[in-house]
Design a protein around this nucleic acid. Structure first.
Lengths: 259, 259
DNA sequence: GGTCCGTACTGGTACGGTCCAGCTGGCGAG
DNA sequence: CTCGCCAGCTGGACCGTACCAGTACGGACC
């Protein structure tokens, strides 16, 4: 028994409906709507896409707590001003990109066992010369190169990692398959100019400025990875607050300008 | 229905049930359970507290995306060892350099009244076209150029600032002379290539990578300054730890705008 | 005119149910 | 003994419904 989903772009399938709806909303938000513009009401979305209200609320809920939307009880749901955006990221690349309203994807450039550079070996607490799992990826946002990433894992912590699909979120993989949910990390951040091969990979000019992250991630006492990422500075910036945490979407209505 | 929820601390009332359950879970998690220990299954919680599964999922969902819990499909929900967060401090150039073991100094390149760029005016909450105190400085560490800094102050907040010696710590000046001790700030960080004049000033090659900071500083509610700094990436890097949050005990009697 | 209140929206909370998908462990077949 | 399968757990994804609580607006009443 299947009532035909007539006008809806949302269908049952391997992709959850709320994810489909979410994608639709992101597209609408980022292309058609101005900040503080209302999106259709939950009940309208229910009708328009032939889904339940719960599904709608799930999709909207995700976007709300990623900071793309904000809800006002009794009034509606609105596009959050772009001002508030990123946080610091120990979040995975995937989560970070989604938070910024981009669709993350990855291209695995290499995945093998390799001896890490001495500095990395030291960070991972491995004896010099010992091999480690080495993964090199090109990270894309909306299909456009965003960053280049080289990660090393101590191989005894992640047996069989190379057999998994590494084009998704590795943090998720670590947490789910190996019980290694990142608990702490440390990173240093500086800038660098793109070398010719890197520029080619990232689609920038040679010498273009890159943000260079060197991060060590821990799960409990164990160091689970060391990552070196190079982000295109023209596409990426880090935002940090220098005191109080928490984002701050619910901007109190300043009635100085017309709504 | 069953009004007497014998073993349950969850009752109808002004505080939503999911918030009550959430508070209960937080307490359990932080006092009774070890990291990676499983919490009761959703269906068990449904029974134990006489609420619907949706309520349970709402409560757990909040804690999951605050990083206190993580779910594993088919296994259960577990106490997260920690979460991700980070904070940097607000430090003056002088303090920052001294902490790094360098001797800070400054060369004032300009100090006048000037109309800030629109973006800066907006950050300072000034009407477009209004003048602001403008200070441009070359910052040195151990006598060697480290950064170039352009700062704007709303002139009504810092009358007479231009008559002071600006080659020292301005944060100190602000605090001592004007009672404007910085309490909070926000900055975005990206990278840039050095233009020819900037390169000459900083003593680097043209096109050398620079770390570009755009910082807004507040003292209480007032925005006291906006600074754009360009640091030589070969001499400067930012280190940040991505530590645990463990914000512990939220859920005051009043359900604030949290999620 | 101004106040008051009902109505018709909005999101918020909460209930019930159903089926799917991933994991685990035990038990029987080989 | 090992292997494979399946029952029985888990969370995941949905559906439908109901009522509450803010918000806006217009029309009835002073």
């Amino acid at each position: 028994m299947q009532p035909p989903p007539q006008g809806a772009g949302v269908v049952a399938g391997p992709v959850p409906k709320h994810a489909q709806l979410r994608a639709i909303l992101v597209r609408t938000i980022t292309t058609d709507l101005a900040p503080d513009a209302p999106i259709p009401s939950e009940r309208e979305l229910v009708e328009a896409y032939c889904v339940s209200r719960m599904t709608v609320r799930e999709a909207i809920g995700q976007l709300v707590n990623e900071g793309l939307l904000y809800r006002v009880h009794g009034k509606g749901t609105f596009v959050a001003p772009a001002a508030v955006q990123s946080q610091l990221h120990l979040a995975s690349f995937s989560a970070d990109m989604r938070r910024r309203g981009h669709e993350p994807s990855s291209r695995v450039l290499a995945a093998d066992l390799r001896t890490p550079p001495p500095a990395v070996a030291r960070a991972l607490a491995l004896p010099p010369g010992a091999p480690a799992v080495h993964v090199e990826r090109l990270r894309l946002a909306d299909g456009v190169p965003m960053a280049h990433e080289v990660t090393y894992y101590p191989d005894h912590l992640v047996p069989g990692l190379l057999e998994h699909d590494l084009s998704g979120s590795t943090y998720e993989l670590l947490a789910v398959r190996y019980g290694l949910a990142p608990t702490a990390g440390e990173q240093t951040l500086t800038a660098e100019s793109a070398t010719r091969p890197l520029a080619a990979l990232l689609g920038t000019a040679t010498g273009a400025p890159l943000l260079l992250f060197a991060r060590t991630t821990r799960a409990g006492d164990a160091v689970v990875e060391h990552t070196t990422s190079r982000y295109r500075a023209d596409r990426y910036s880090v935002r940090m607050s220098l005191d109080r945490t928490t984002d701050g979407v619910p901007a109190p209505p300043e009635p100085r300008s017309s709504t």
